[in-house]
Design a protein around this nucleic acid. Structure first.
Length: 427
RNA sequence: GCGGCUAUAGUUCAGCGGCAGAACGCCUGACUGUGGCUCAGGAUGUCGUGGGUUCGAUCCCCACUAGCCGCCCCA
């Protein structure tokens, strides 16, 4: 087979679907702007070390899902460098924060990004190797208030607004606290301890998780395991006073602004850098891939990357899945053009292009036909693509009076050339 | 990375070890300056790729590739 195809896990986005993508991205930009976020665009590839240190060496993302290659040295003096297509964008944003010394502004940095990310996973519906994320980060020095639970609540409230404005119905917000960077290891140790006795009674996956990633045991969906999971230590009991107060304040702020949520003590996130608040917005109807977006606080990430203390909170939204959800909710239809301009006879083609130019410059969406088409064909195509059809034949060209027919009503009128744009605008 | 299901026309899908099918869509005409409705006619194609079994394979077998579902993991 010699025909070329998009490589596995990648795909082309075509009209009219791309209209939906633009709608989602425009809506996100509009909402983010109201919260005074600015856009950041980081490179699509970075030094491999950034992800190893930022995301976590032992995570699946880093250990087996990255597109990594050795960028060859081109000169004796140049060293080769391991590069990686970004599997997520938070590490890149924090790298940029450090590199440009944004902390020195003393202000909170509120940055959003929209763009492709890459993970070498088994493709599935809503899960691709090149996928798109919309995300944002609030990060800054502690003096700027970056640790405040108000920031957590504000981000969550913004997301609730965004999903509403996107028209997503029936989303759910689940939140939890995984504690500070010292709480977490203490809790994991306690969990391992408890699992030494309990794990053998559980499903095979849990027996494995107990060894490799004990937090994931909490996520197990096997019904028989649920009673056992209930008996395991709860993260809430291992939070220090600061973390407890922080989480309570986040909840209180959400209550105050009327954003509904569920606390799920079993919500744990996979990436190493998360501390304290973690959250997920889910939606039914996505099958096992039910998370629309997820995120959390990462108070130690900047320092882990060699930067200054810069606590932050952020999220990443899976745009592919969001689009799926929107498509399931409403059949999309592409907006028709304002008019289909049909030259009658090839002799009228040149004049038609001139007229189309005028109308387009007046802001109208015009589909230009071809004088080589039979009139019947022009009508058929016009009816598919536009609200109205404009006939430009020999007579019209001579008289300057054009024929315009409305497809919906069937009404046909004569319109002077100069008044055409106005006539088309009023429907 | 693992397991399962699937792959036939532009699309959605039937089908059968012996000439490749339907619906929708598309093209042509009835209707040389009027669409939708109707009618008549037409073309749809490497039956995913490669190999094997067979007189003969789109069909059976194997491998590969891709999609989907689940797992792992995660947005």
């Amino acid at each position: 087979m010699s025909t070329l195809k998009a490589v596995r896990g990648t795909r082309d986005l075509l009209p009219p679907e791309t209209e939906l993508w633009n709608f989602v991205e425009e809506t996100a930009r509009r909402v983010f702007a109201r919260y005074n976020f600015g856009e950041i665009r980081t490179p699509i590839f970075e030094d491999t070390g950034l992800f190893a240190r930022g995301v976590g060496e032992e995570t699946d993302i880093v250990s087996k899902e990255m597109y990594t290659w050795e960028d060859r040295a081109r000169a004796q003096s140049e060293k080769s460098q391991s590069l990686t297509l970004r599997p997520e964008n938070t590490a890149g944003v924090v790298r940029a924060y450090i590199e440009h010394k944004l902390g020195e502004t003393g202000l909170l940095q509120k940055l959003y990004y929209i763009g492709p990310q890459f993970r070498r996973e088994r493709p599935q519906k809503g899960r691709y190797r090149q996928f798109y994320q919309i995300g944002a980060e609030v990060i800054g020095p502690p003096s700027a208030g970056s640790e405040s639970p108000l920031r957590d609540a504000e981000v969550l409230e913004m997301l609730a607004t965004l999903l509403d404005e996107l028209g997503i119905q029936g989303w759910k917000l689940v939140i939890n606290s995984v504690g500070s960077s010292s709480d977490r290891p203490r809790y994991i140790a306690a969990l391992r301890e408890a699992l030494r006795d309990k794990a053998p009674l559980m499903c095979v996956d849990c027996q494995r998780r107990a060894e490799t990633n004990p937090l994931r045991v909490l996520d197990c969906k096997v019904p028989e395991d649920q009673p056992i999971i209930e008996t395991l230590p709860k993260i809430a009991d291992y939070l220090d006073e600061d973390s407890k107060a922080h989480f309570a304040a986040v909840c209180a702020a959400l209550d105050a602004c009327g954003v509904r949520y569920d606390v799920d003590p079993r919500l744990v996130r996979g990436l190493d850098y998360y501390t304290r608040t973690t959250f997920e917005f889910t939606h039914g109807g996505l099958g096992a891939q039910n998370a629309l977006l997820g995120g959390g606080r990462y108070d130690g990430l900047s320092e882990a990357l060699g930067g200054p203390k810069a606590p932050g909170i952020g999220f990443a939204m899976g745009e592919d899945r969001l689009i799926l959800t929107l498509q399931a909710q409403a059949a999309q239809q592409s907006a028709p053009a304002d008019a289909y301009l049909a030259p009658l006879g090839e002799a009228q083609n040149a004049a038609a292009l001139g007229l189309a130019r005028e109308l387009r410059r007046a802001g109208l969406r015009i589909e230009l036909g071809d004088g080589g088409f039979r009139l019947k064909k022009s009508f058929e195509i016009g009816n598919k693509l536009a609200r109205k059809i404009i006939l430009l034949g020999e007579d019209e060209l001579k008289s300057g009076i054009l024929t315009v027919k409305d497809f919906a009503s069937g009404e046909q009128v004569k319109v002077a050339w100069a008044e055409l744009a106005t006539a088309l605008r009023s429907r």
